[in-house]
Structures are given as structure tokens and as C-alpha cells.
Amino acid sequence: MPDHTSNGMQCHEFDQLLSEAIDGALSGAELDRFQAHARVCPACGPLLAEAEAGRNWLKGLTEVEPPAGLVTKILASTTGVDTQRLSAAERATQPGVSWWERFEATVLHPFLAPIWATVRQPRFAMSFGMAFFALSVGLTVLGIKPADVRQISLKPAAIRHTFYATEARVVRYYENVRIVYEVESRVREFRRTAPAEPGETSPAKPKGSKNDTSQQPEQKEERNYSQSDSRIILASAHVSQGLNFCDLPVVSVTTYRRFV
């Protein structure tokens, strides 16, 4: 804006007073100076006219109505719970709504909405999932099947029977464990004391008994009898008084291995 000086007022001063002048806040000598400057200044005069016109155009604008569901959307994006209550309340006030829907909107919904809002939170869902997983793993490890639960009888006699059976099982288990520990401790004690009394040990086997093969040929002969092709069998006979040992006939017998 060019800075002219007319009637003792500069253009920048005029610009500063322009808003007040349009608002009607100027009076007296200041207003006179302002108007005089506007009349003679080629830049400020049109500016005053345009600014007044612009203000009038803007004042002609009326407020617009926000969209119908804006409040509901805002509450949904900020709190969440209130939105359900609001929408339920809005539904309840609509004509042609059945008594059950009205009851649901006014009584049930306000009661259940906070619970449902909590349940819907991811944190709760994650905790619930982890608890379910842990429970299922625990039941599997303990060998409890969900199908067995259905067969459980809740009659007093059955409960008493289950109690005594479980008690007996526990006692039996305890006793078994006790006996095993006792036997183990005795064996350990016995082993500990054994080297101290050599006389009581079992008779030692003769050295080299493992390598003693003196009896093995006989055993081997018995085991491998079918493997020899021919063998001379000496027939035995009583040695009588009158018969010389050398006169005994020699019989040769040949055995054939039969292949089947």
C-alpha cells in the first residue's frame, strides 16, 4: 500500500483504523480524519468500500447445520460406550418401535453396554485367549478330557465314592513310592557295606574260567553233529573173558547229510 499523507493521516494509520471504523468504534475527530483520508486517498477510499462490501457479504452467510450423526460419530471416536447408549436411546425414541426393542434400549442396553464394551477391548480378548490356552494345556497334561466331564455323576453317593477312590489312589501311590525308596535305600546301604566284609561275598570264580575251553569241544561236537560228512562209530561190546579186544569187528558207517 502506498503511504500517502492526507489530512494528517497516513495510509498505514488508515489501515489500522479501518477495522474499528467498519465496526463503528471510531468517533469524534478521529472519525473525521479517517473519512477525510478515505475521500482523497486513491488507494484507501476503494479499500474502505471493498472492505465494507466484503464484510456485508460475509455477514449474509448463515450457519450451516452439521450432519445428523456427527455427535454420535464424535462420541464413538472418543469414548465409544456413550455412542451405543446414544444410538440405543435414539432407536427407542423412534415411532413404531416394539415394546421389546424399547425395553432393550432403555433397560438392557444401558446395563449390558459397559460389559460388552469391556469385553470388546483387545486387551481383554488377549487375556481371555491366554487363559483359555493355559487351561486347555493344563487339562491335556493332567489327562482330563472334556468328554469325561459329562459322565461325572453329581449324586451324593457317587461323589462319596469318587472321594474314597481318589483317597485310596493317593494312599496307594504314596505307599508304593515309600516302598520303592526303602528298597533303594537298603540296596544302597548294602552296597556301601559290602567291600568292608570280603568273607561274605559270593565265592569268586576261578581265574580264567571264562577262557577255559576244555569242555567246549564236547559241547561243540554235540552242537555240530550234523555238519560232519562221515564218522567212524565204534560199536561197543562187552568184553568177555574169552574174546580178545583186537578181534572185535570194525564197522564203518557213513552218514549222509540230507538236504531238504
Binding site: 489500522q16 471493498e50 465494507e52 462490501a53 464484510r55 457479504w57
Partner: peptide, 17 residues
């Protein structure tokens, strides 16, 4: 602020005129 308001009003008026 005042200067911007004045210029804004004037510019709007010019556009509409």
C-alpha cells in the same frame, strides 16, 4: 490481525464484484 481482516474482506469483495 486487523490488516489481514481488512485485506481478506476487500479481496472477497473484489472476487464477488
Amino acid at each position: 490481525v486487523k490488516s489481514r481482516i481488512n485485506r481478506g474482506r476487500a479481496e472477497l469483495a473484489r472476487l464477488l464484484q
